[in-house]
Amino acid sequence: MTIKNKVVIITGASSGIGEATAKLLAIKGAKVVLAARREEKLKRIVEEIKAQFGEAVYFVTDVTKREENQKLIDFAKMTYGTIDVMFLNAGIMPNSPMSALKVEDWDQMIDINIRGVLYGIAAVLPLFIHQKGGHIIATSSVAGLKSYPGGAVYGATKWAVRDLMEVLRMESAQEETNIRTATIYPAAINTELLDEISHEQTAQSMSGLYKRYGITPDRIATIVAYAIDQPEDVNVNEFTVGPTKQPW
């Protein structure tokens, strides 16, 4: 298995998809570096992984700050000597109608969902170029493939992630740097995303949808593991994933 002994950084690792992925990869033998803002949650997850004889460390990181992304990369290199995979998973979804004019929410989504991805790429890319290999994985959304009322800005950020990752894949192939990419487009996955929706009507609607269709984050973790576990000369670059019973 190619997962074993790989060094994997995961942003947004304090809950949801990030937490589930960290635990699964650790079970499979990866050395996992968890990054997020909530230290208490990161510490708990690392302790749980180590209790199962997995290898994990954490580094408190705000992905909206470029210098903290660089410090995360430096910490991972100092701890494990190299980096094999960067899973850019941090994201928020405070949806609302455009007419609600929740501009502060728009700004936060742009900062975390787009800048956070760009800063993560900027931090790890020089290393991957130098070592002629690496794997960058990003969490987009089905809202990055299809438009949904109430999700204009969130969808726009996820469309941006889609384009960034596809162009990165193409440029890597052209430049012969052997950097693999994978973009994941989840549908209704039961995480903390809904907790940040302040628009009451949107929150009620989304809550009802997720209660009806939502599946657990570990389902996405298996997709991440599958992407990493492919041979180095194979790049599976897109995964659209959701509940079987959800029409999306």
Score class of each variant (00 low, 15 high):
Ile189Gly: 07
Ala173Lys: 12
Thr2Ile: 12
Thr64Asp: 02
Gln201Met: 09
Ala20His: 03
Thr181Met: 06
Val63His: 06
Lys158Val: 02
Ile110Met: 10
Met86Ala: 14
Ala30Asn: 11
Lys23Ala: 13
His130Val: 00
Gln246Val: 00
Ile228Leu: 11
Glu238Asp: 13
Ser205Trp: 12
Phe75Asp: 08
Glu104Leu: 09
His135Phe: 15
Ile179Tyr: 03
Ile215Val: 15
Pro217Met: 05
Thr191Val: 09
Phe87Lys: 03
Leu164Ala: 08
Ser207Gly: 15
Glu19Lys: 15
Pro126Asn: 01
Ala188Gly: 04
Pro231Lys: 05
Gly208Cys: 06
Lys245Arg: 14
Ala76Glu: 02
Leu101Asn: 13
Glu67Ser: 11
Thr191Gln: 02
Ile215Glu: 13
Thr244Cys: 12
Ser140Gly: 07
Pro97Thr: 05
Ala35Phe: 05
Met78Arg: 14
Leu194Met: 07
Arg37Gln: 12
Leu101Tyr: 07
Val103Ile: 15
Gly91Val: 06
Leu42Glu: 10
Asn190Gly: 09
Asn95Glu: 13
Glu176Phe: 02
Gly116Cys: 01
Gln230Trp: 00
Tyr210Met: 12
Glu192Val: 07
Gly18Thr: 04
Gly16Asp: 04
Gln174Asn: 12
Leu42Tyr: 04
Asp218Leu: 07
Leu25Val: 10
Arg38Lys: 12
Asn235Thr: 10
Asn237Gly: 01
Glu166Gly: 00
Ala203Asp: 01
Lys146Glu: 14
Lys23Thr: 14
Ile27Asn: 14
Thr191Pro: 04
Val234His: 02
Arg115Gly: 00
Pro94Asp: 06
Gly242Cys: 10
Lys31Ile: 11
Val60Tyr: 01
Leu34Phe: 06
Ala22Val: 04
Val142Pro: 03
Glu47Trp: 01
Leu145Met: 14
Gln246Arg: 00
Leu127Ala: 02
Gly12Trp: 01
Val167Cys: 08
Ala188Arg: 11
Glu238Tyr: 03
Asn178Gln: 08
Met98Val: 14
Phe53His: 14
Gln246His: 14
Ser140Tyr: 05
Gly155Pro: 02
Asp218Lys: 10
Ile3Arg: 09
Ser96Cys: 13
Ala203Ile: 00
Leu24Phe: 05
Lys71Gln: 15
Glu175Tyr: 05
